[in-house]
């Protein structure tokens, strides 16, 4: 069976690379999609959310802060993310603080131009996503 050659890249560095991935689930702006090997070429925009990909029995979960996804021919899949991190690496406290700061700033600048507003909203979404995923996977080891 063919596998997906999978890559997560941010402007700052390559976060993850693996050519033995069997399926990828990504949060796009038009809803969550799952990509299997031999998918047709596709370019789509990502929302902040959870990125899940599987290698055999192993499942990897990443928090992604938006960006885009490109599926090329030959099972090349690239995620160009603004930011991405493994769920285990999420610092919930920091995300919480960042979110509060952004919310506070947003209420201040509400009257200003909408570009700022959109950027602040993006930050809030990103941090909310971090908090949500961080909490979701933090509980797993405890319940065992």
């Amino acid at each position: 069976m063919s596998k997906i050659n999978f890559k997560i890249v941010t402007p700052e560095k390559v976060i993850y690379e693996n050519d033995q991935i069997e399926q990828v689930t990504a949060p796009t702006t038009t809803g969550e999609i799952t990509i299997l090997p031999n998918h047709t070429p596709l370019v789509t925009i990502l929302n902040p959310g959870e990125l899940i990909f599987k290698q055999g029995e192993e499942t990897h979960n990443f928090a992604v802060a938006g960006g885009f996804l490109e599926m090329k021919e030959n099972n090349q899949l690239v995620i160009l993310a603004d930011n991405a991190e493994h769920v285990d690496q999420i610092d919930i406290d920091r995300a919480q603080q960042a979110r509060e700061k952004a919310v506070a700033q947003m209420s201040e600048i509400k009257n200003r131009e909408d570009v700022d507003y959109a950027r602040m909203q993006a930050i809030i979404d990103r941090e909310s996503n971090r908090i949500r995923l961080g909490n979701k996977y933090r509980k797993l080891p405890k319940s065992e």
Binding site: T29, P41, F68
Partner: peptide, 18 residues
């Protein structure tokens, strides 16, 4: 035969600033 979701222009709008 690339697929663009939601649309080609929207994808461009996201990519170019980046």
């Amino acid at each position: 035969d690339y697929l663009f979701e939601p649309s080609r222009d929207q994808v461009l709008e996201i990519i170019l600033p980046r």
